[in-house]
C-alpha cells in the first residue's frame, strides 16, 4: 500500500484530488487549493519508488550538463561492478541511441529512452519500463538523465539517490550558477580530474563552491579515464546505497 494515497502499490491509475474550501462572495469566489503543480509527476514517482524499494532495487538518477562524462563513468562502472551486481541502465537523450550502444556490450542491461522534444526525463517515462525492461530481479537501476543542468532538477523519477556530475572542463563555479540542481544532489562527482594539470582549474575552489550550495553532499573526485578516485565511487555503490 502506498502511504500517501492509500492506493494499491504499483497501481498505475493517477487521480487528482485536492483539499479545497470555498469562500462565497456574490458571483465571485476564491477557491483555496494548495496543491503541488507537479502532483501528477510526483505521484507517479512515488509509485516508481515503491515498486523499486519493494524489490530492493537501489535507484540512482545521474544528472549533469551535456558531455560531463555520465556515460563514460557508466561504461567503467559496468566493467567493474557488472558481474557483482545485477544492474539495469536507462539512458535519456533527446535523440539517438549512441549512449546505449556504448554500454550494450557490457555486463548488465541497457535501454535508451528518447525524450524527443523534452529536456528531461519524467516519472512516467520510467514507469513504462518497470515490470518490463526492469523485470524486478535487478539490484540496481541507474538512470542517466538528459544532459541539462536546469530541467531534470524539477522532476522526481522515483530514485533513492540523486547524483550530479561536475566536470573539470566546466569551470569551478557551475554549482553557483546552477544551484538548484547541485543543491538537490546527494552525491556530487567531480569528473575528468586527469585534465586538471592542463586547465586553470582549482579543486579547492570547486569544493568551496559546492559546500556553499550543498554543505552535506558527498563529493567524489574521479578520473574515469585513468581510474584515479574510482575505488571510492565503486565502494559507495557497493556499500552505501
Amino acid at each position: 500500500m502506498c502511504e500517501d494515497c492509500g492506493c494499491e502499490e504499483g497501481n498505475k491509475k493517477i487521480y487528482f484530488d485536492s483539499l479545497e474550501n470555498s469562500v462565497e462572495n456574490a458571483s465571485q469566489k476564491t477557491i483555496k487549493i494548495e496543491t503541488d503543480i507537479l502532483d501528477k509527476n510526483n505521484h507517479i514517482a512515488h509509485h516508481n519508488s515503491h515498486w523499486l524499494q519493494d524489490r530492493n532495487i537501489a535507484t540512482l538518477n545521474i544528472m549533469s550538463s551535456p558531455g560531463s562524462g555520465k556515460t563514460y563513468l557508466l561504461e567503467k562502472t559496468l566493467d567493474k561492478l557488472g558481474h557483482l551486481k545485477k544492474i539495469a541502465v536507462l539512458i535519456g537523450d533527446q535523440q539517438t541511441d549512441n549512449d546505449a550502444k556504448r554500454l550494450i556490450l557490457k555486463e548488465g542491461k541497457v535501454k535508451q529512452i528518447n525524450t524527443v522534444s523534452s529536456c528531461h526525463l519524467d516519472a512516467s517515462m520510467i514507469q513504462k519500463e518497470l515490470g518490463s525492461f526492469v523485470d524486478g530481479s535487478e539490484n540496481m537501476l541507474i538512470i542517466e538523465n538528459v544532459g541539462n543542468l536546469v530541467c531534470p532538477a524539477a522532476f522526481k523519477l522515483g530514485e533513492k539517490i540523486k547524483i550530479a556530475l561536475l566536470s573539470t572542463t566546466e569551470g569551478e563555479d557551475k554549482p553557483l550558477k546552477y544551484p538548484v540542481l547541485f543543491h538537490s544532489a546527494d552525491v556530487i562527482i567531480i569528473t575528468k580530474t586527469d585534465l586538471i594539470p592542463y586547465l586553470d582549474w582549482d579543486l579547492n575552489k570547486a569544493y568551496e563552491y559546492i559546500k556553499k550550495i550543498n554543505p552535506n553532499a558527498l563529493i567524489i573526485p574521479v578520473s574515469a579515464k585513468t581510474g584515479d578516485g574510482m575505488t571510492r565511487w565503486y565502494d559507495y555503490l557497493m556499500n552505501e546505497v
Binding site: 465571485q28 476564491t30 477557491i31 503541488d36
Partner: peptide, 11 residues
C-alpha cells in the same frame, strides 16, 4: 521548494 497552485478566483 514550492511550486504550487494556491488559489483561484472564479465566477
Amino acid at each position: 521548494k514550492e511550486f504550487s497552485l494556491v488559489s483561484m478566483e472564479v465566477e
